[in-house]
Nucleic acid binder design. Structure first.
Lengths: 228, 228
DNA sequence: AAGTTTGGTGACAGTTATGTGACGCCGCGC
DNA sequence: GCGCGGCGTCACATAACTGTCACCAAACTT
């Protein structure tokens, strides 16, 4: 699954531009226009990285950063701040407050891409890693293969992305909505129950060799991949 | 596909000269004028080898080298440093930091070519090798011949380059766009589906002797050559 | 224990991606 | 100018995958 970027920026023109280009670059993108919306979307969409403008209405960028850092779930969420030229003091405060990197406006798109990728790699190596193993299941993103105890498993594209996503956070429970957002994309509309069907298909495929089901159903909450 | 060299050099005159000559020698070349650009281009273009001037604005050569070595994906990326006469200390630090070779300015072009090729051969044998074998398929770049289990296979130029590229990263899945970029060149415009047709032709040619198809289709992702 | 909610799953019809034969175009050697 | 080998596109057939639904079972509630 592609990394998910939350862009927090109040200027429409810039946020549109960022969204367009990041999507083209293969990222999933959510947009927030102010600090409140940002906090909400962080919660709801669980982005992998936040690109945060420093000048924001309502809650300032620095405050958003502080709040994210003070909450357990988002303590390690990578943050890249956008500052206007010359806001030197902010930049320093930003890094103090826990931003992972900053970039000065105006900037080149490819510079942003590079930093987003760099931060992802540094903070959450798993995301950029070529292959991940959880228990007896290994997924290789480059070769696009899944192996369970030496047996190759064939998955359709959606099942592959679904498993990939679950494997990035083993043990964690995801609601159907979260999975739809992450795996299907926040822009398409499909029934939540569709997730059930795909989970079912994934289970069947993963259990083809007689092994036991690695996916846990959490009633009225969602699904999780068993950590070990 | 020809090896891809990233030249990091801040003097325009020298970088132009290097670019011109390396291209004439059959390498693909990218140019970076400083350390930041270098890091960006490494990420973006994924060169096969870096020729790195030691005196650079912004990020020094030594720092570039250190960063490349500290990142998983570039740990083994070959680096050849360019040092001015007498910068003995730098040279040692350079090799310490993980450069693979160094060359003292001023130097002869063919000396540079030789070192680039040597380093490529040492670090990534496949790229500089005259012939490569994957499973029962052998490709001879010099003679432009392909052999599968002792049977010679005739391929057109495009199919040859396509197979050559796939054989450089066996098992890895490439999107149609990646293949177009790598095999057709990023400047020509052809339909993505054209890749399918050529894959089809390649398959037919490779299976002429009754062997089974060595190319794997990954639905909605692309194609890969089976590793073994 | 009956009622209610939630999850599992086979079936199905629609959609999308891929395989492939056919065709016309082009550059080249003769 | 002609024939030939390659190339890029297209159209069509086919295979693979998808989202929904209906219906049943399991898990909770009261």
């Amino acid at each position: 699954m592609q990394p998910h970027v939350l862009v927090v920026e109040d200027e429409d023109a810039l946020s549109e531009l960022l969204s367009y280009n990041l999507k083209k670059e293969g990222f999933r993108v959510s947009l927030a226009a102010d600090g409140e919306e940002a906090m909400m979307l962080v919660e709801e969409r669980q982005p992998d990285v936040v690109v945060l403008d420093w000048m924001l209405p309502k809650i300032s960028g620095i405050e958003v950063c502080r709040r994210l850092r003070s909450r357990h779930e988002t303590r390690n969420l990578p943050i890249i701040m956008l500052t206007a030229r010359g806001e030197e003091a902010d930049r320093i405060r930003g890094l103090d407050t826990g931003a992972d990197d900053y970039i000065v406006k105006p900037f080149l798109m490819k510079e942003l891409f590079a930093r987003v990728r760099a931060v992802l790699r540094r903070i959450r190596p798993g995301l950029a890693e070529d292959s991940v193993t959880v228990g007896d299941i290994t997924i290789d993103r480059v070769a696009h293969r899944v192996v369970r105890s030496d047996l190759e498993i064939h998955l359709g594209p959606t099942e592959f992305r679904l498993l990939d996503y679950l494997m990035q956070h083993p043990g964690r429970v995801f609601s159907r909505e979260q999975l739809l957002d992450a795996v299907w994309g926040s822009d398409v509309y499909v029934e939540a129950r569709t997730v059930d069907v795909h989970i079912g298909r994934l289970r069947k495929a993963l259990s083809a060799g007689g092994e036991h089901d690695p996916i846990r159903t959490v009633r009225s909450a969602g699904y999780a991949l068993n950590a070990a």
